[in-house]
Structure formats: C-alpha cells, structure tokens
C-alpha cells in the first residue's frame, strides 16, 4: 500500500518534471519570436483559451461526449468480445471461424473502415460507435481467449465440484481467473478506441450539441484558433494520462496486485 502510493507519487513527479521542462522549452522558443504564433502560440494564449472554454463548460462537454462514446462502445465491444471468446471456448468449430475473423479484422485500423461505415450506418453516433466497437472487440477477444486457455483445469474442477453449470463456471471461474488478460486487453482497447473516436470526430464531426473532443480540435483548426487547438490537445493528453497512469493502475492495484501475480 505504502509502496504503491510512493510509486504513484514518483510517476506524478516524473511526469510533472518532463511536462514542465517541455513547457519551459516551448515558452523559450516562443519568446525568440522566430516562430509564428499561428504555429506555436504562447502558453498564456493557450492557457487563457483553455480557461475560457473551461468556464463556459465547452471543454468539459466536448470531452464528456468523447468519453461517454468510448465507454458505451467499450462496453458493447467487451460484451461482444466475451460472447465471441466464450463461443470459441465452447466449440472447436466456431473457434476456427472466430480465429479467422479476428485475424482479418484485428489489423484493420478503424479509420480505414470509415467509408464502409458511412455507407452502412450513416454518419451519426452509430457510426462512431461502430468504429469504437471495432477497435475494442478484437484485442479483447484475443486477450480473453488467451486468458481462458491460461486458466488451470483445477479451478474449473473446483467450479464443477460446486455444481456450477458451464455458464456458471464461465462467470464465476473463467472470467475472474483471466482478469489479468482482460485488463491488458482493456488497456489496448482503451488506447485504440480513444484514438479512433478522436479521429472519427475529426473526419465526420457534427456541429452543435453532440460534437466530441476531436470535433472541438478540428473546429479550432478550421477557424485557425491555434491556441484553442492546443488547449484541446492538452485536454486529450490529460485524459490519456489520467486514464493510463491512474485509472488502470488503480484497477490493477485493486485486483491483480491484491490477488498476486499469475493465477
């Protein structure tokens, strides 16, 4: 516990050190006036753009839209991946099909599917969700399946001994026993879906209420509000850092580190 807190503090200090130094270099370059503020606006300009978007609630709203899309898509993708992984686990025949499907679909970047997605599901939220689900489902399926195959037969026997059905064993034994694989899958899925949602929003953003952070950045870009664009990117980075450094580490700390390494 104490050790973990110290480790987290040290991460924060390292991150803060590097970020502050980068900002310092940034400001030094800006102060030489050799670079147009349209390329490298001053930190004050970025800061004030950030601040004004923050107090109007714009940034929070846009970030909220992107995050909730990733959460919804992540949930759907994870559930579908669970269905696929369970099906592959139960049936050799289905496993072959799912193997092939994963091998074909996994390397495809979500953005490459965009033209198809527009044709099939239009340009609304559904399309963004489809792309997020795509970026979540394959890494999750792969990780869940390796997780399932790593579960020791003894745990399955224990479950059978308690009279659990196949489904019960799935829920009560297989899934918790492969949690470390699931967590690794979630990490990959998060990184891929966050990227996908931001790029998708940039490619088909929606004006008005339902735009996300990618749309926010794109909009600043087309109106040449460079400082606002950097402010949006800064939020993007902050969200990434918080999720990776804190949320996932916390999740890991609450689970795998408590249960002890490999099961």
């Amino acid at each position: 516990m104490g050790l973990d807190r110290r480790r987290r503090m040290s991460i924060i200090i390292t991150r803060a050190g590097w970020i502050l130094s980068t900002l310092l270099v940034w400001q030094l370059i800006v102060s030489t006036r050799r670079v147009s503020p349209l390329i490298l606006p001053s930190l004050q300009a970025i800061g004030s753009s950030f601040w004004s978007s923050l107090i109007t609630g714009d940034l929070v709203r846009y970030a909220g839209v992107s995050i909730s899309l990733v959460l919804a898509g992540g949930l759907i993708g994870t559930l579908l991946a669970a269905v696929l992984a369970v099906a592959a686990y139960q049936s050799k025949f289905l496993a072959g099909g799912i193997d092939t499907l994963t091998a074909v679909a996994h390397p495809l970047p979500g953005i490459a599917l965009l033209p198809l997605v527009i044709l099939w599901s239009g340009t609304g939220i559904t399309s963004v969700l489809v792309i997020i689900v795509h970026s979540v489902i394959w890494p999750m399926t792969i990780n869940l399946r390796s997780g399932f195959s790593s579960v020791h037969q003894r745990y399955i026997d224990v479950g059978r001994n308690y009279g659990f059905s196949r489904l019960g064993i799935m829920l009560h034994i297989m899934i918790p026993a492969s949690w470390s694989y699931m967590l690794a899958g979630l990490r990959i899925a998060w990184a891929r879906s966050w990227r996908a949602v931001i790029s998708a929003e940039m490619i088909f953003g929606v004006m008005g209420a339902s735009g996300g952070l990618g749309w926010y950045i794109f909009q600043r870009r087309v109106f040449m509000d460079t400082a606002g664009m950097y402010a949006g990117i800064a939020v993007l980075i902050m969200i990434g850092l918080v999720i990776e450094d804190h949320l996932f580490r916390l999740l890991e700390h609450k689970t795998i580190s408590r249960w002890g390494g490999r099961q």
Binding site: L114, P115, T123, I203, F204, G205, V206, M207, G208, F218
Partner: peptide
Amino acid sequence: DTRIITLSHPD
C-alpha cells in the same frame, strides 16, 4: 448549423 456534419466531398 446543428444539422451540419463535415465530410470530405467523396464521403
């Protein structure tokens, strides 16, 4: 404006 979405011409 609230009905506008941005797409490249071919999309």
